[in-house]
Design a protein around this nucleic acid. Structure first.
Lengths: 110, 110
DNA sequence: TGAATATATGAACAAACGTTCACATATCAA
DNA sequence: TTGATATGTGAACGTTTGTTCATATATTCA
């Protein structure tokens, strides 16, 4: 492999910032708790105390998980009186979640 | 939220095994080195010594990274004499990689 | 055979992670 | 105001991660 080809290969991968951003997103998706949060949010907007009823982790763990997701702008927040309501940030990301779901459901049919 | 609705929400998230599998895949995609490996493999099949010329990590790190990816069946291996050639496992996964690429390129245009 | 090249692997270690605990803050209702 | 409910946050802790180093294995070629 000559240096020309090496340069070519390197030019066709995302730049360092993009790679870092992607790594950060995937690492947020790597936690089972956060994945469950997202598959719940896919169904409806939810506040922390609702997650608490569904997931078997502490309120603190949920809160930390949601913070990770919202720092990456994968979920967003709306305050409604006593409650803090979380929802999927955009249709782009919702599509990704739906794709994951389709994918696992497909595997189940084999 | 009544217990009926809780049950409903839980029924519509992937089962525990699927969640675990997904978490494992995302966790493989969370490493910058492994992401770079995949964006290179998207362009052409490669052996370890070629990765070595392109990436600035040790041969050992590349080998470990490739093992992680192939254990999850995201990349596959073919022996060719002295060389071990790695390639993207299937079109399904290739599509995912292409989607990531499109996504970051799109962001760049803003 | 022996030297060179290509790859794999296990141990080690620092860094990062996810959870819980304890506590702080905020909002509502009385 | 006070008590109850909802949520956020930092520290702590055990666990897992990614890399490197050292070494082992495998293949080719002379």
């Amino acid at each position: 492999m000559d240096s020309k080809q090496i340069g070519n290969l390197l030019q066709n991968i995302p730049d360092s910032d993009s790679i870092m951003r992607m790594a950060a997103v995937f690492q947020a998706l790597q936690s089972e708790t956060r994945l469950k949060i997202l598959f719940l949010l896919r169904q409806k907007e939810m506040c922390v105390c609702e997650f608490e009823q569904v997931l078997s982790v502490t309120q603190s763990a949920i809160s930390h998980g949601l913070r990770t997701l919202s720092q990456l702008d994968l979920v967003r927040v709306r305050r409604e009186g006593k409650f803090t309501i979380y929802y999927i940030a955009d249709e782009h990301f919702r599509t990704l979640i739906e794709m994951c779901l389709e994918h696992v459901e497909e595997k189940h049919e084999l």
